[in-house]
Simulated assay, not measured.
Amino acid sequence: MKNWHVDDVMTTAVVTVAEDTPYRTVVDLLIRHRLSAVPVVDDFERVTGVVSEADLLRKIEYAGDEKPRLFEGRRRRGDRVKADARTAADLMSSPPVIAPNGTPIAAAARLMDRENVKRLPVVDDLGRLVGIVSRGDLLKVHLRSDDDILHDVRDGILRVYLLDDVPRVEVTVQDGLVTLKGRVDRWSSADIAKRLTRQIAGVVGVEDKLEYDYDDSNVLGTGIAYGVA
């Protein structure tokens, strides 16, 4: 069973800017390439920040507003500084929220949600940019065919963790919904099949219709991972 990472769905042809790129050049790049943000890199292709449309709009938002307001918050003061920015280094959000290559797509999705960002530059072990992944890229896993998902369930789960039960288990996949039907030896076997099937890239849900001969839940304890991911 293939474990999907950001490397599998990221865009590798990334538009970048240098720290000394002028404001208007950054605007031109975003409009011309229909982007909402662009990574800022140094001479060694290491990501030092990200400039977004929101960063660029500070110049419009604060146009003519020269005096800071009384008791102005830290964030607003930072936005005001960006309004006077002339280069990408002054505009960018830094340090950037990045994902090392090899990051599982589920971890990348959680990181985006936690940091409230729409995209993640992907970097190698030296911090050099190798790609960029967006929310839309993460959704690409749900374009996988039902046949590919079925193959992962049969060969990556049943024939690895439930080999003796394979002849008694029927698997069907319809629009990403996996149905497990049949009978296995133990409750723990049914639980493993259900848990791991949910983790397969592209699975929308799991319909668990498995029955079992022996209930070992009290012996093992519910919620135990049985040594599998």
Rank of each mutant, 00 (worst) to 15 (best):
Asp65Arg: 14
Leu91Arg: 06
Gly64Cys: 04
Leu56Trp: 05
Gly78Trp: 04
Val81Ile: 11
Asn101Asp: 09
Asp84Asn: 12
Glu45Gly: 03
Arg86Glu: 15
Val81Thr: 09
Ala83Val: 10
Leu70Gln: 05
Pro68Val: 01
Asp84Pro: 04
Met92Tyr: 04
Glu72Pro: 03
Arg75Thr: 08
Thr48Lys: 14
Thr48Ala: 08
Glu45Arg: 15
Met92Ser: 06
Gly64His: 03
Ala89Leu: 06
Pro100Ile: 07
Pro68Arg: 01
Lys59Gln: 12
Ala89Asp: 13
Asn101Gln: 14
Arg58Gln: 15
Val40Phe: 06
Leu56Met: 02
Arg77Gly: 04
Ala88Asn: 07
Lys59Phe: 11
Asp79Val: 00
Leu91Ala: 09
Glu45Tyr: 12
Lys82Met: 11
Asp42Asn: 14
Gly102Gln: 01
Phe44Ile: 09
Val50Ser: 09
Gly73Ala: 12
Arg75Pro: 00
Asp90Lys: 11
Ser94Thr: 07
Asp79Gln: 13
Ile98Ala: 14
Lys82Cys: 03
Ser52Leu: 04
Ile98Lys: 15
Asp84Thr: 14
Leu56Phe: 04
Tyr62Met: 05
Arg46Leu: 07
Pro96Val: 02
Ala89Pro: 00
Pro96Asn: 03
Ser52Ile: 02
Asp84Lys: 09
Arg74Val: 13
Val47Thr: 06
Ala85Pro: 01
Pro100Lys: 10
Lys82His: 06
Ile60Pro: 02
Lys82Gly: 04
Ala83Cys: 09
Asp65Met: 12
Arg75Phe: 09
